[in-house]
C-alpha cells in the first residue's frame, strides 16, 4: 500500500487516477507487469464462478487501450487462469481490441457504468471478436468485483520493496496532471485526423471495388445462364 504520512487519503481511498499514473510511460514495465499479474491472480482466486464463464474463451487475447494513456494492456485467457500484462511490440494481433478513456474502462469493469451505454455514446470503441468480448463483459459483470480494491490489495505482497513503489507513486501524484495533459497533447490530433481522412477514403474505394466485383460476377452468371439457355 502507500504508507505515506503526508498523503493519508491515498491509503484509505484508492484513486483510479493514481493507477492511471502508474501505467504512464515513465515507469519501467516490469513492476507494472508484476502488479497486473498479481491482480489477475487475485480476481481469479476470489471469483471462481467468473473463471467458469470464461472457459469458452480459452486462448483468446484482448487488447485494452486506454486512449489517454501510453500503455496498452493485454489480457490473455488461459485454461483456468488469466494473464494480464503491458502490451509490447512483439505481441501478435489480439482477438479483440477495446478503446476508451481509462476512467470509462475502469468504471465499466467495476460494473459502475453500463458498457453498452458507453458504446452507444461512442466513448468506447470495440473491434474484433464480439462474441468473445460479450463473454468477457458478461463474466466480469456476473460477480461483484471492486477493481479498485483488488488493485490496491495487489500492492501488498509484491516482492519488490514497497519503497520503490512508494517513490513512483509520489512522483506520479505530483506530476500526474502535467503528465495527463501532455499525454493527451501527444495524441497529435491533427495527424490523427489526416490519417482518418485517408483511411476513410481508402475504405470507400475498397467498398466500391467489392461492389463492382460483385456486380460483375452477377452479370457474368446471368450471361452464362443465358448462353446455356440458347445452347439447349
Amino acid at each position: 500500500m502507500f504508507p505515506n504520512p503526508e498523503k493519508p487519503p491515498a491509503n484509505e481511498k484508492f484513486s483510479p487516477l493514481l493507477l492511471a499514473g502508474i501505467i504512464t510511460r515513465s515507469l519501467p514495465v516490469a513492476p507494472l507487469n508484476r502488479l497486473l499479474r498479481h491482480m489477475a491472480r487475485k480476481i481469479q482466486n476470489n471469483h471462481p464462478a467468473i473463471m467458469a464463464r470464461l472457459r469458452p474463451l480459452t486462448g483468446r487475447q484482448f487488447l485494452i487501450c486506454p486512449t489517454d494513456l501510453p500503455h496498452d494492456i493485454r489480457l490473455i485467457i488461459g485454461e483456468g487462469h488469466v494473464d494480464c500484462m503491458i502490451e509490447d511490440e512483439f505481441m501478435g494481433p489480439a482477438d479483440v481490441v477495446i478503446r476508451g478513456p481509462f476512467m470509462s474502462l475502469m468504471d465499466m469493469m467495476d460494473g459502475r457504468v453500463d458498457g453498452d451505454a458507453l458504446f452507444f455514446s461512442r466513448r468506447l470503441s470495440v473491434e474484433g471478436d464480439m462474441e468473445a468480448l460479450l463473454t468477457l463483459r458478461n463474466a466480469l459483470d456476473s460477480e461483484d468485483i471492486d477493481l479498485r480494491a483488488e488493485i490496491l490489495s495487489s500492492f501488498g505482497p509484491l516482492r519488490r520493496p514497497a519503497t520503490a513503489l512508494l517513490k513512483i507513486g509520489q512522483h506520479l501524484f505530483q506530476s500526474l496532471s502535467r503528465d495527463m495533459s501532455s499525454l493527451s497533447q501527444a495524441m497529435t490530433k491533427p495527424l490523427a485526423d489526416r490519417c482518418d481522412g485517408l483511411e476513410q477514403e481508402n475504405q470507400g474505394l475498397r467498398d466500391s471495388v467489392v461492389r463492382l466485383d460483385r456486380m460483375l460476377t452477377k452479370t457474368q452468371n446471368r450471361l452464362q445462364s443465358l448462353t446455356r439457355k440458347k445452347t439447349i
Partner: peptide
C-alpha cells in the same frame, strides 16, 4: 439442371 436453368432464365434478374 434443366429445371433450374429454365427457372433461372424465367426469373432472369
Amino acid at each position: 439442371e434443366e429445371a433450374n436453368d429454365i427457372l433461372q432464365a424465367e426469373m432472369f434478374a
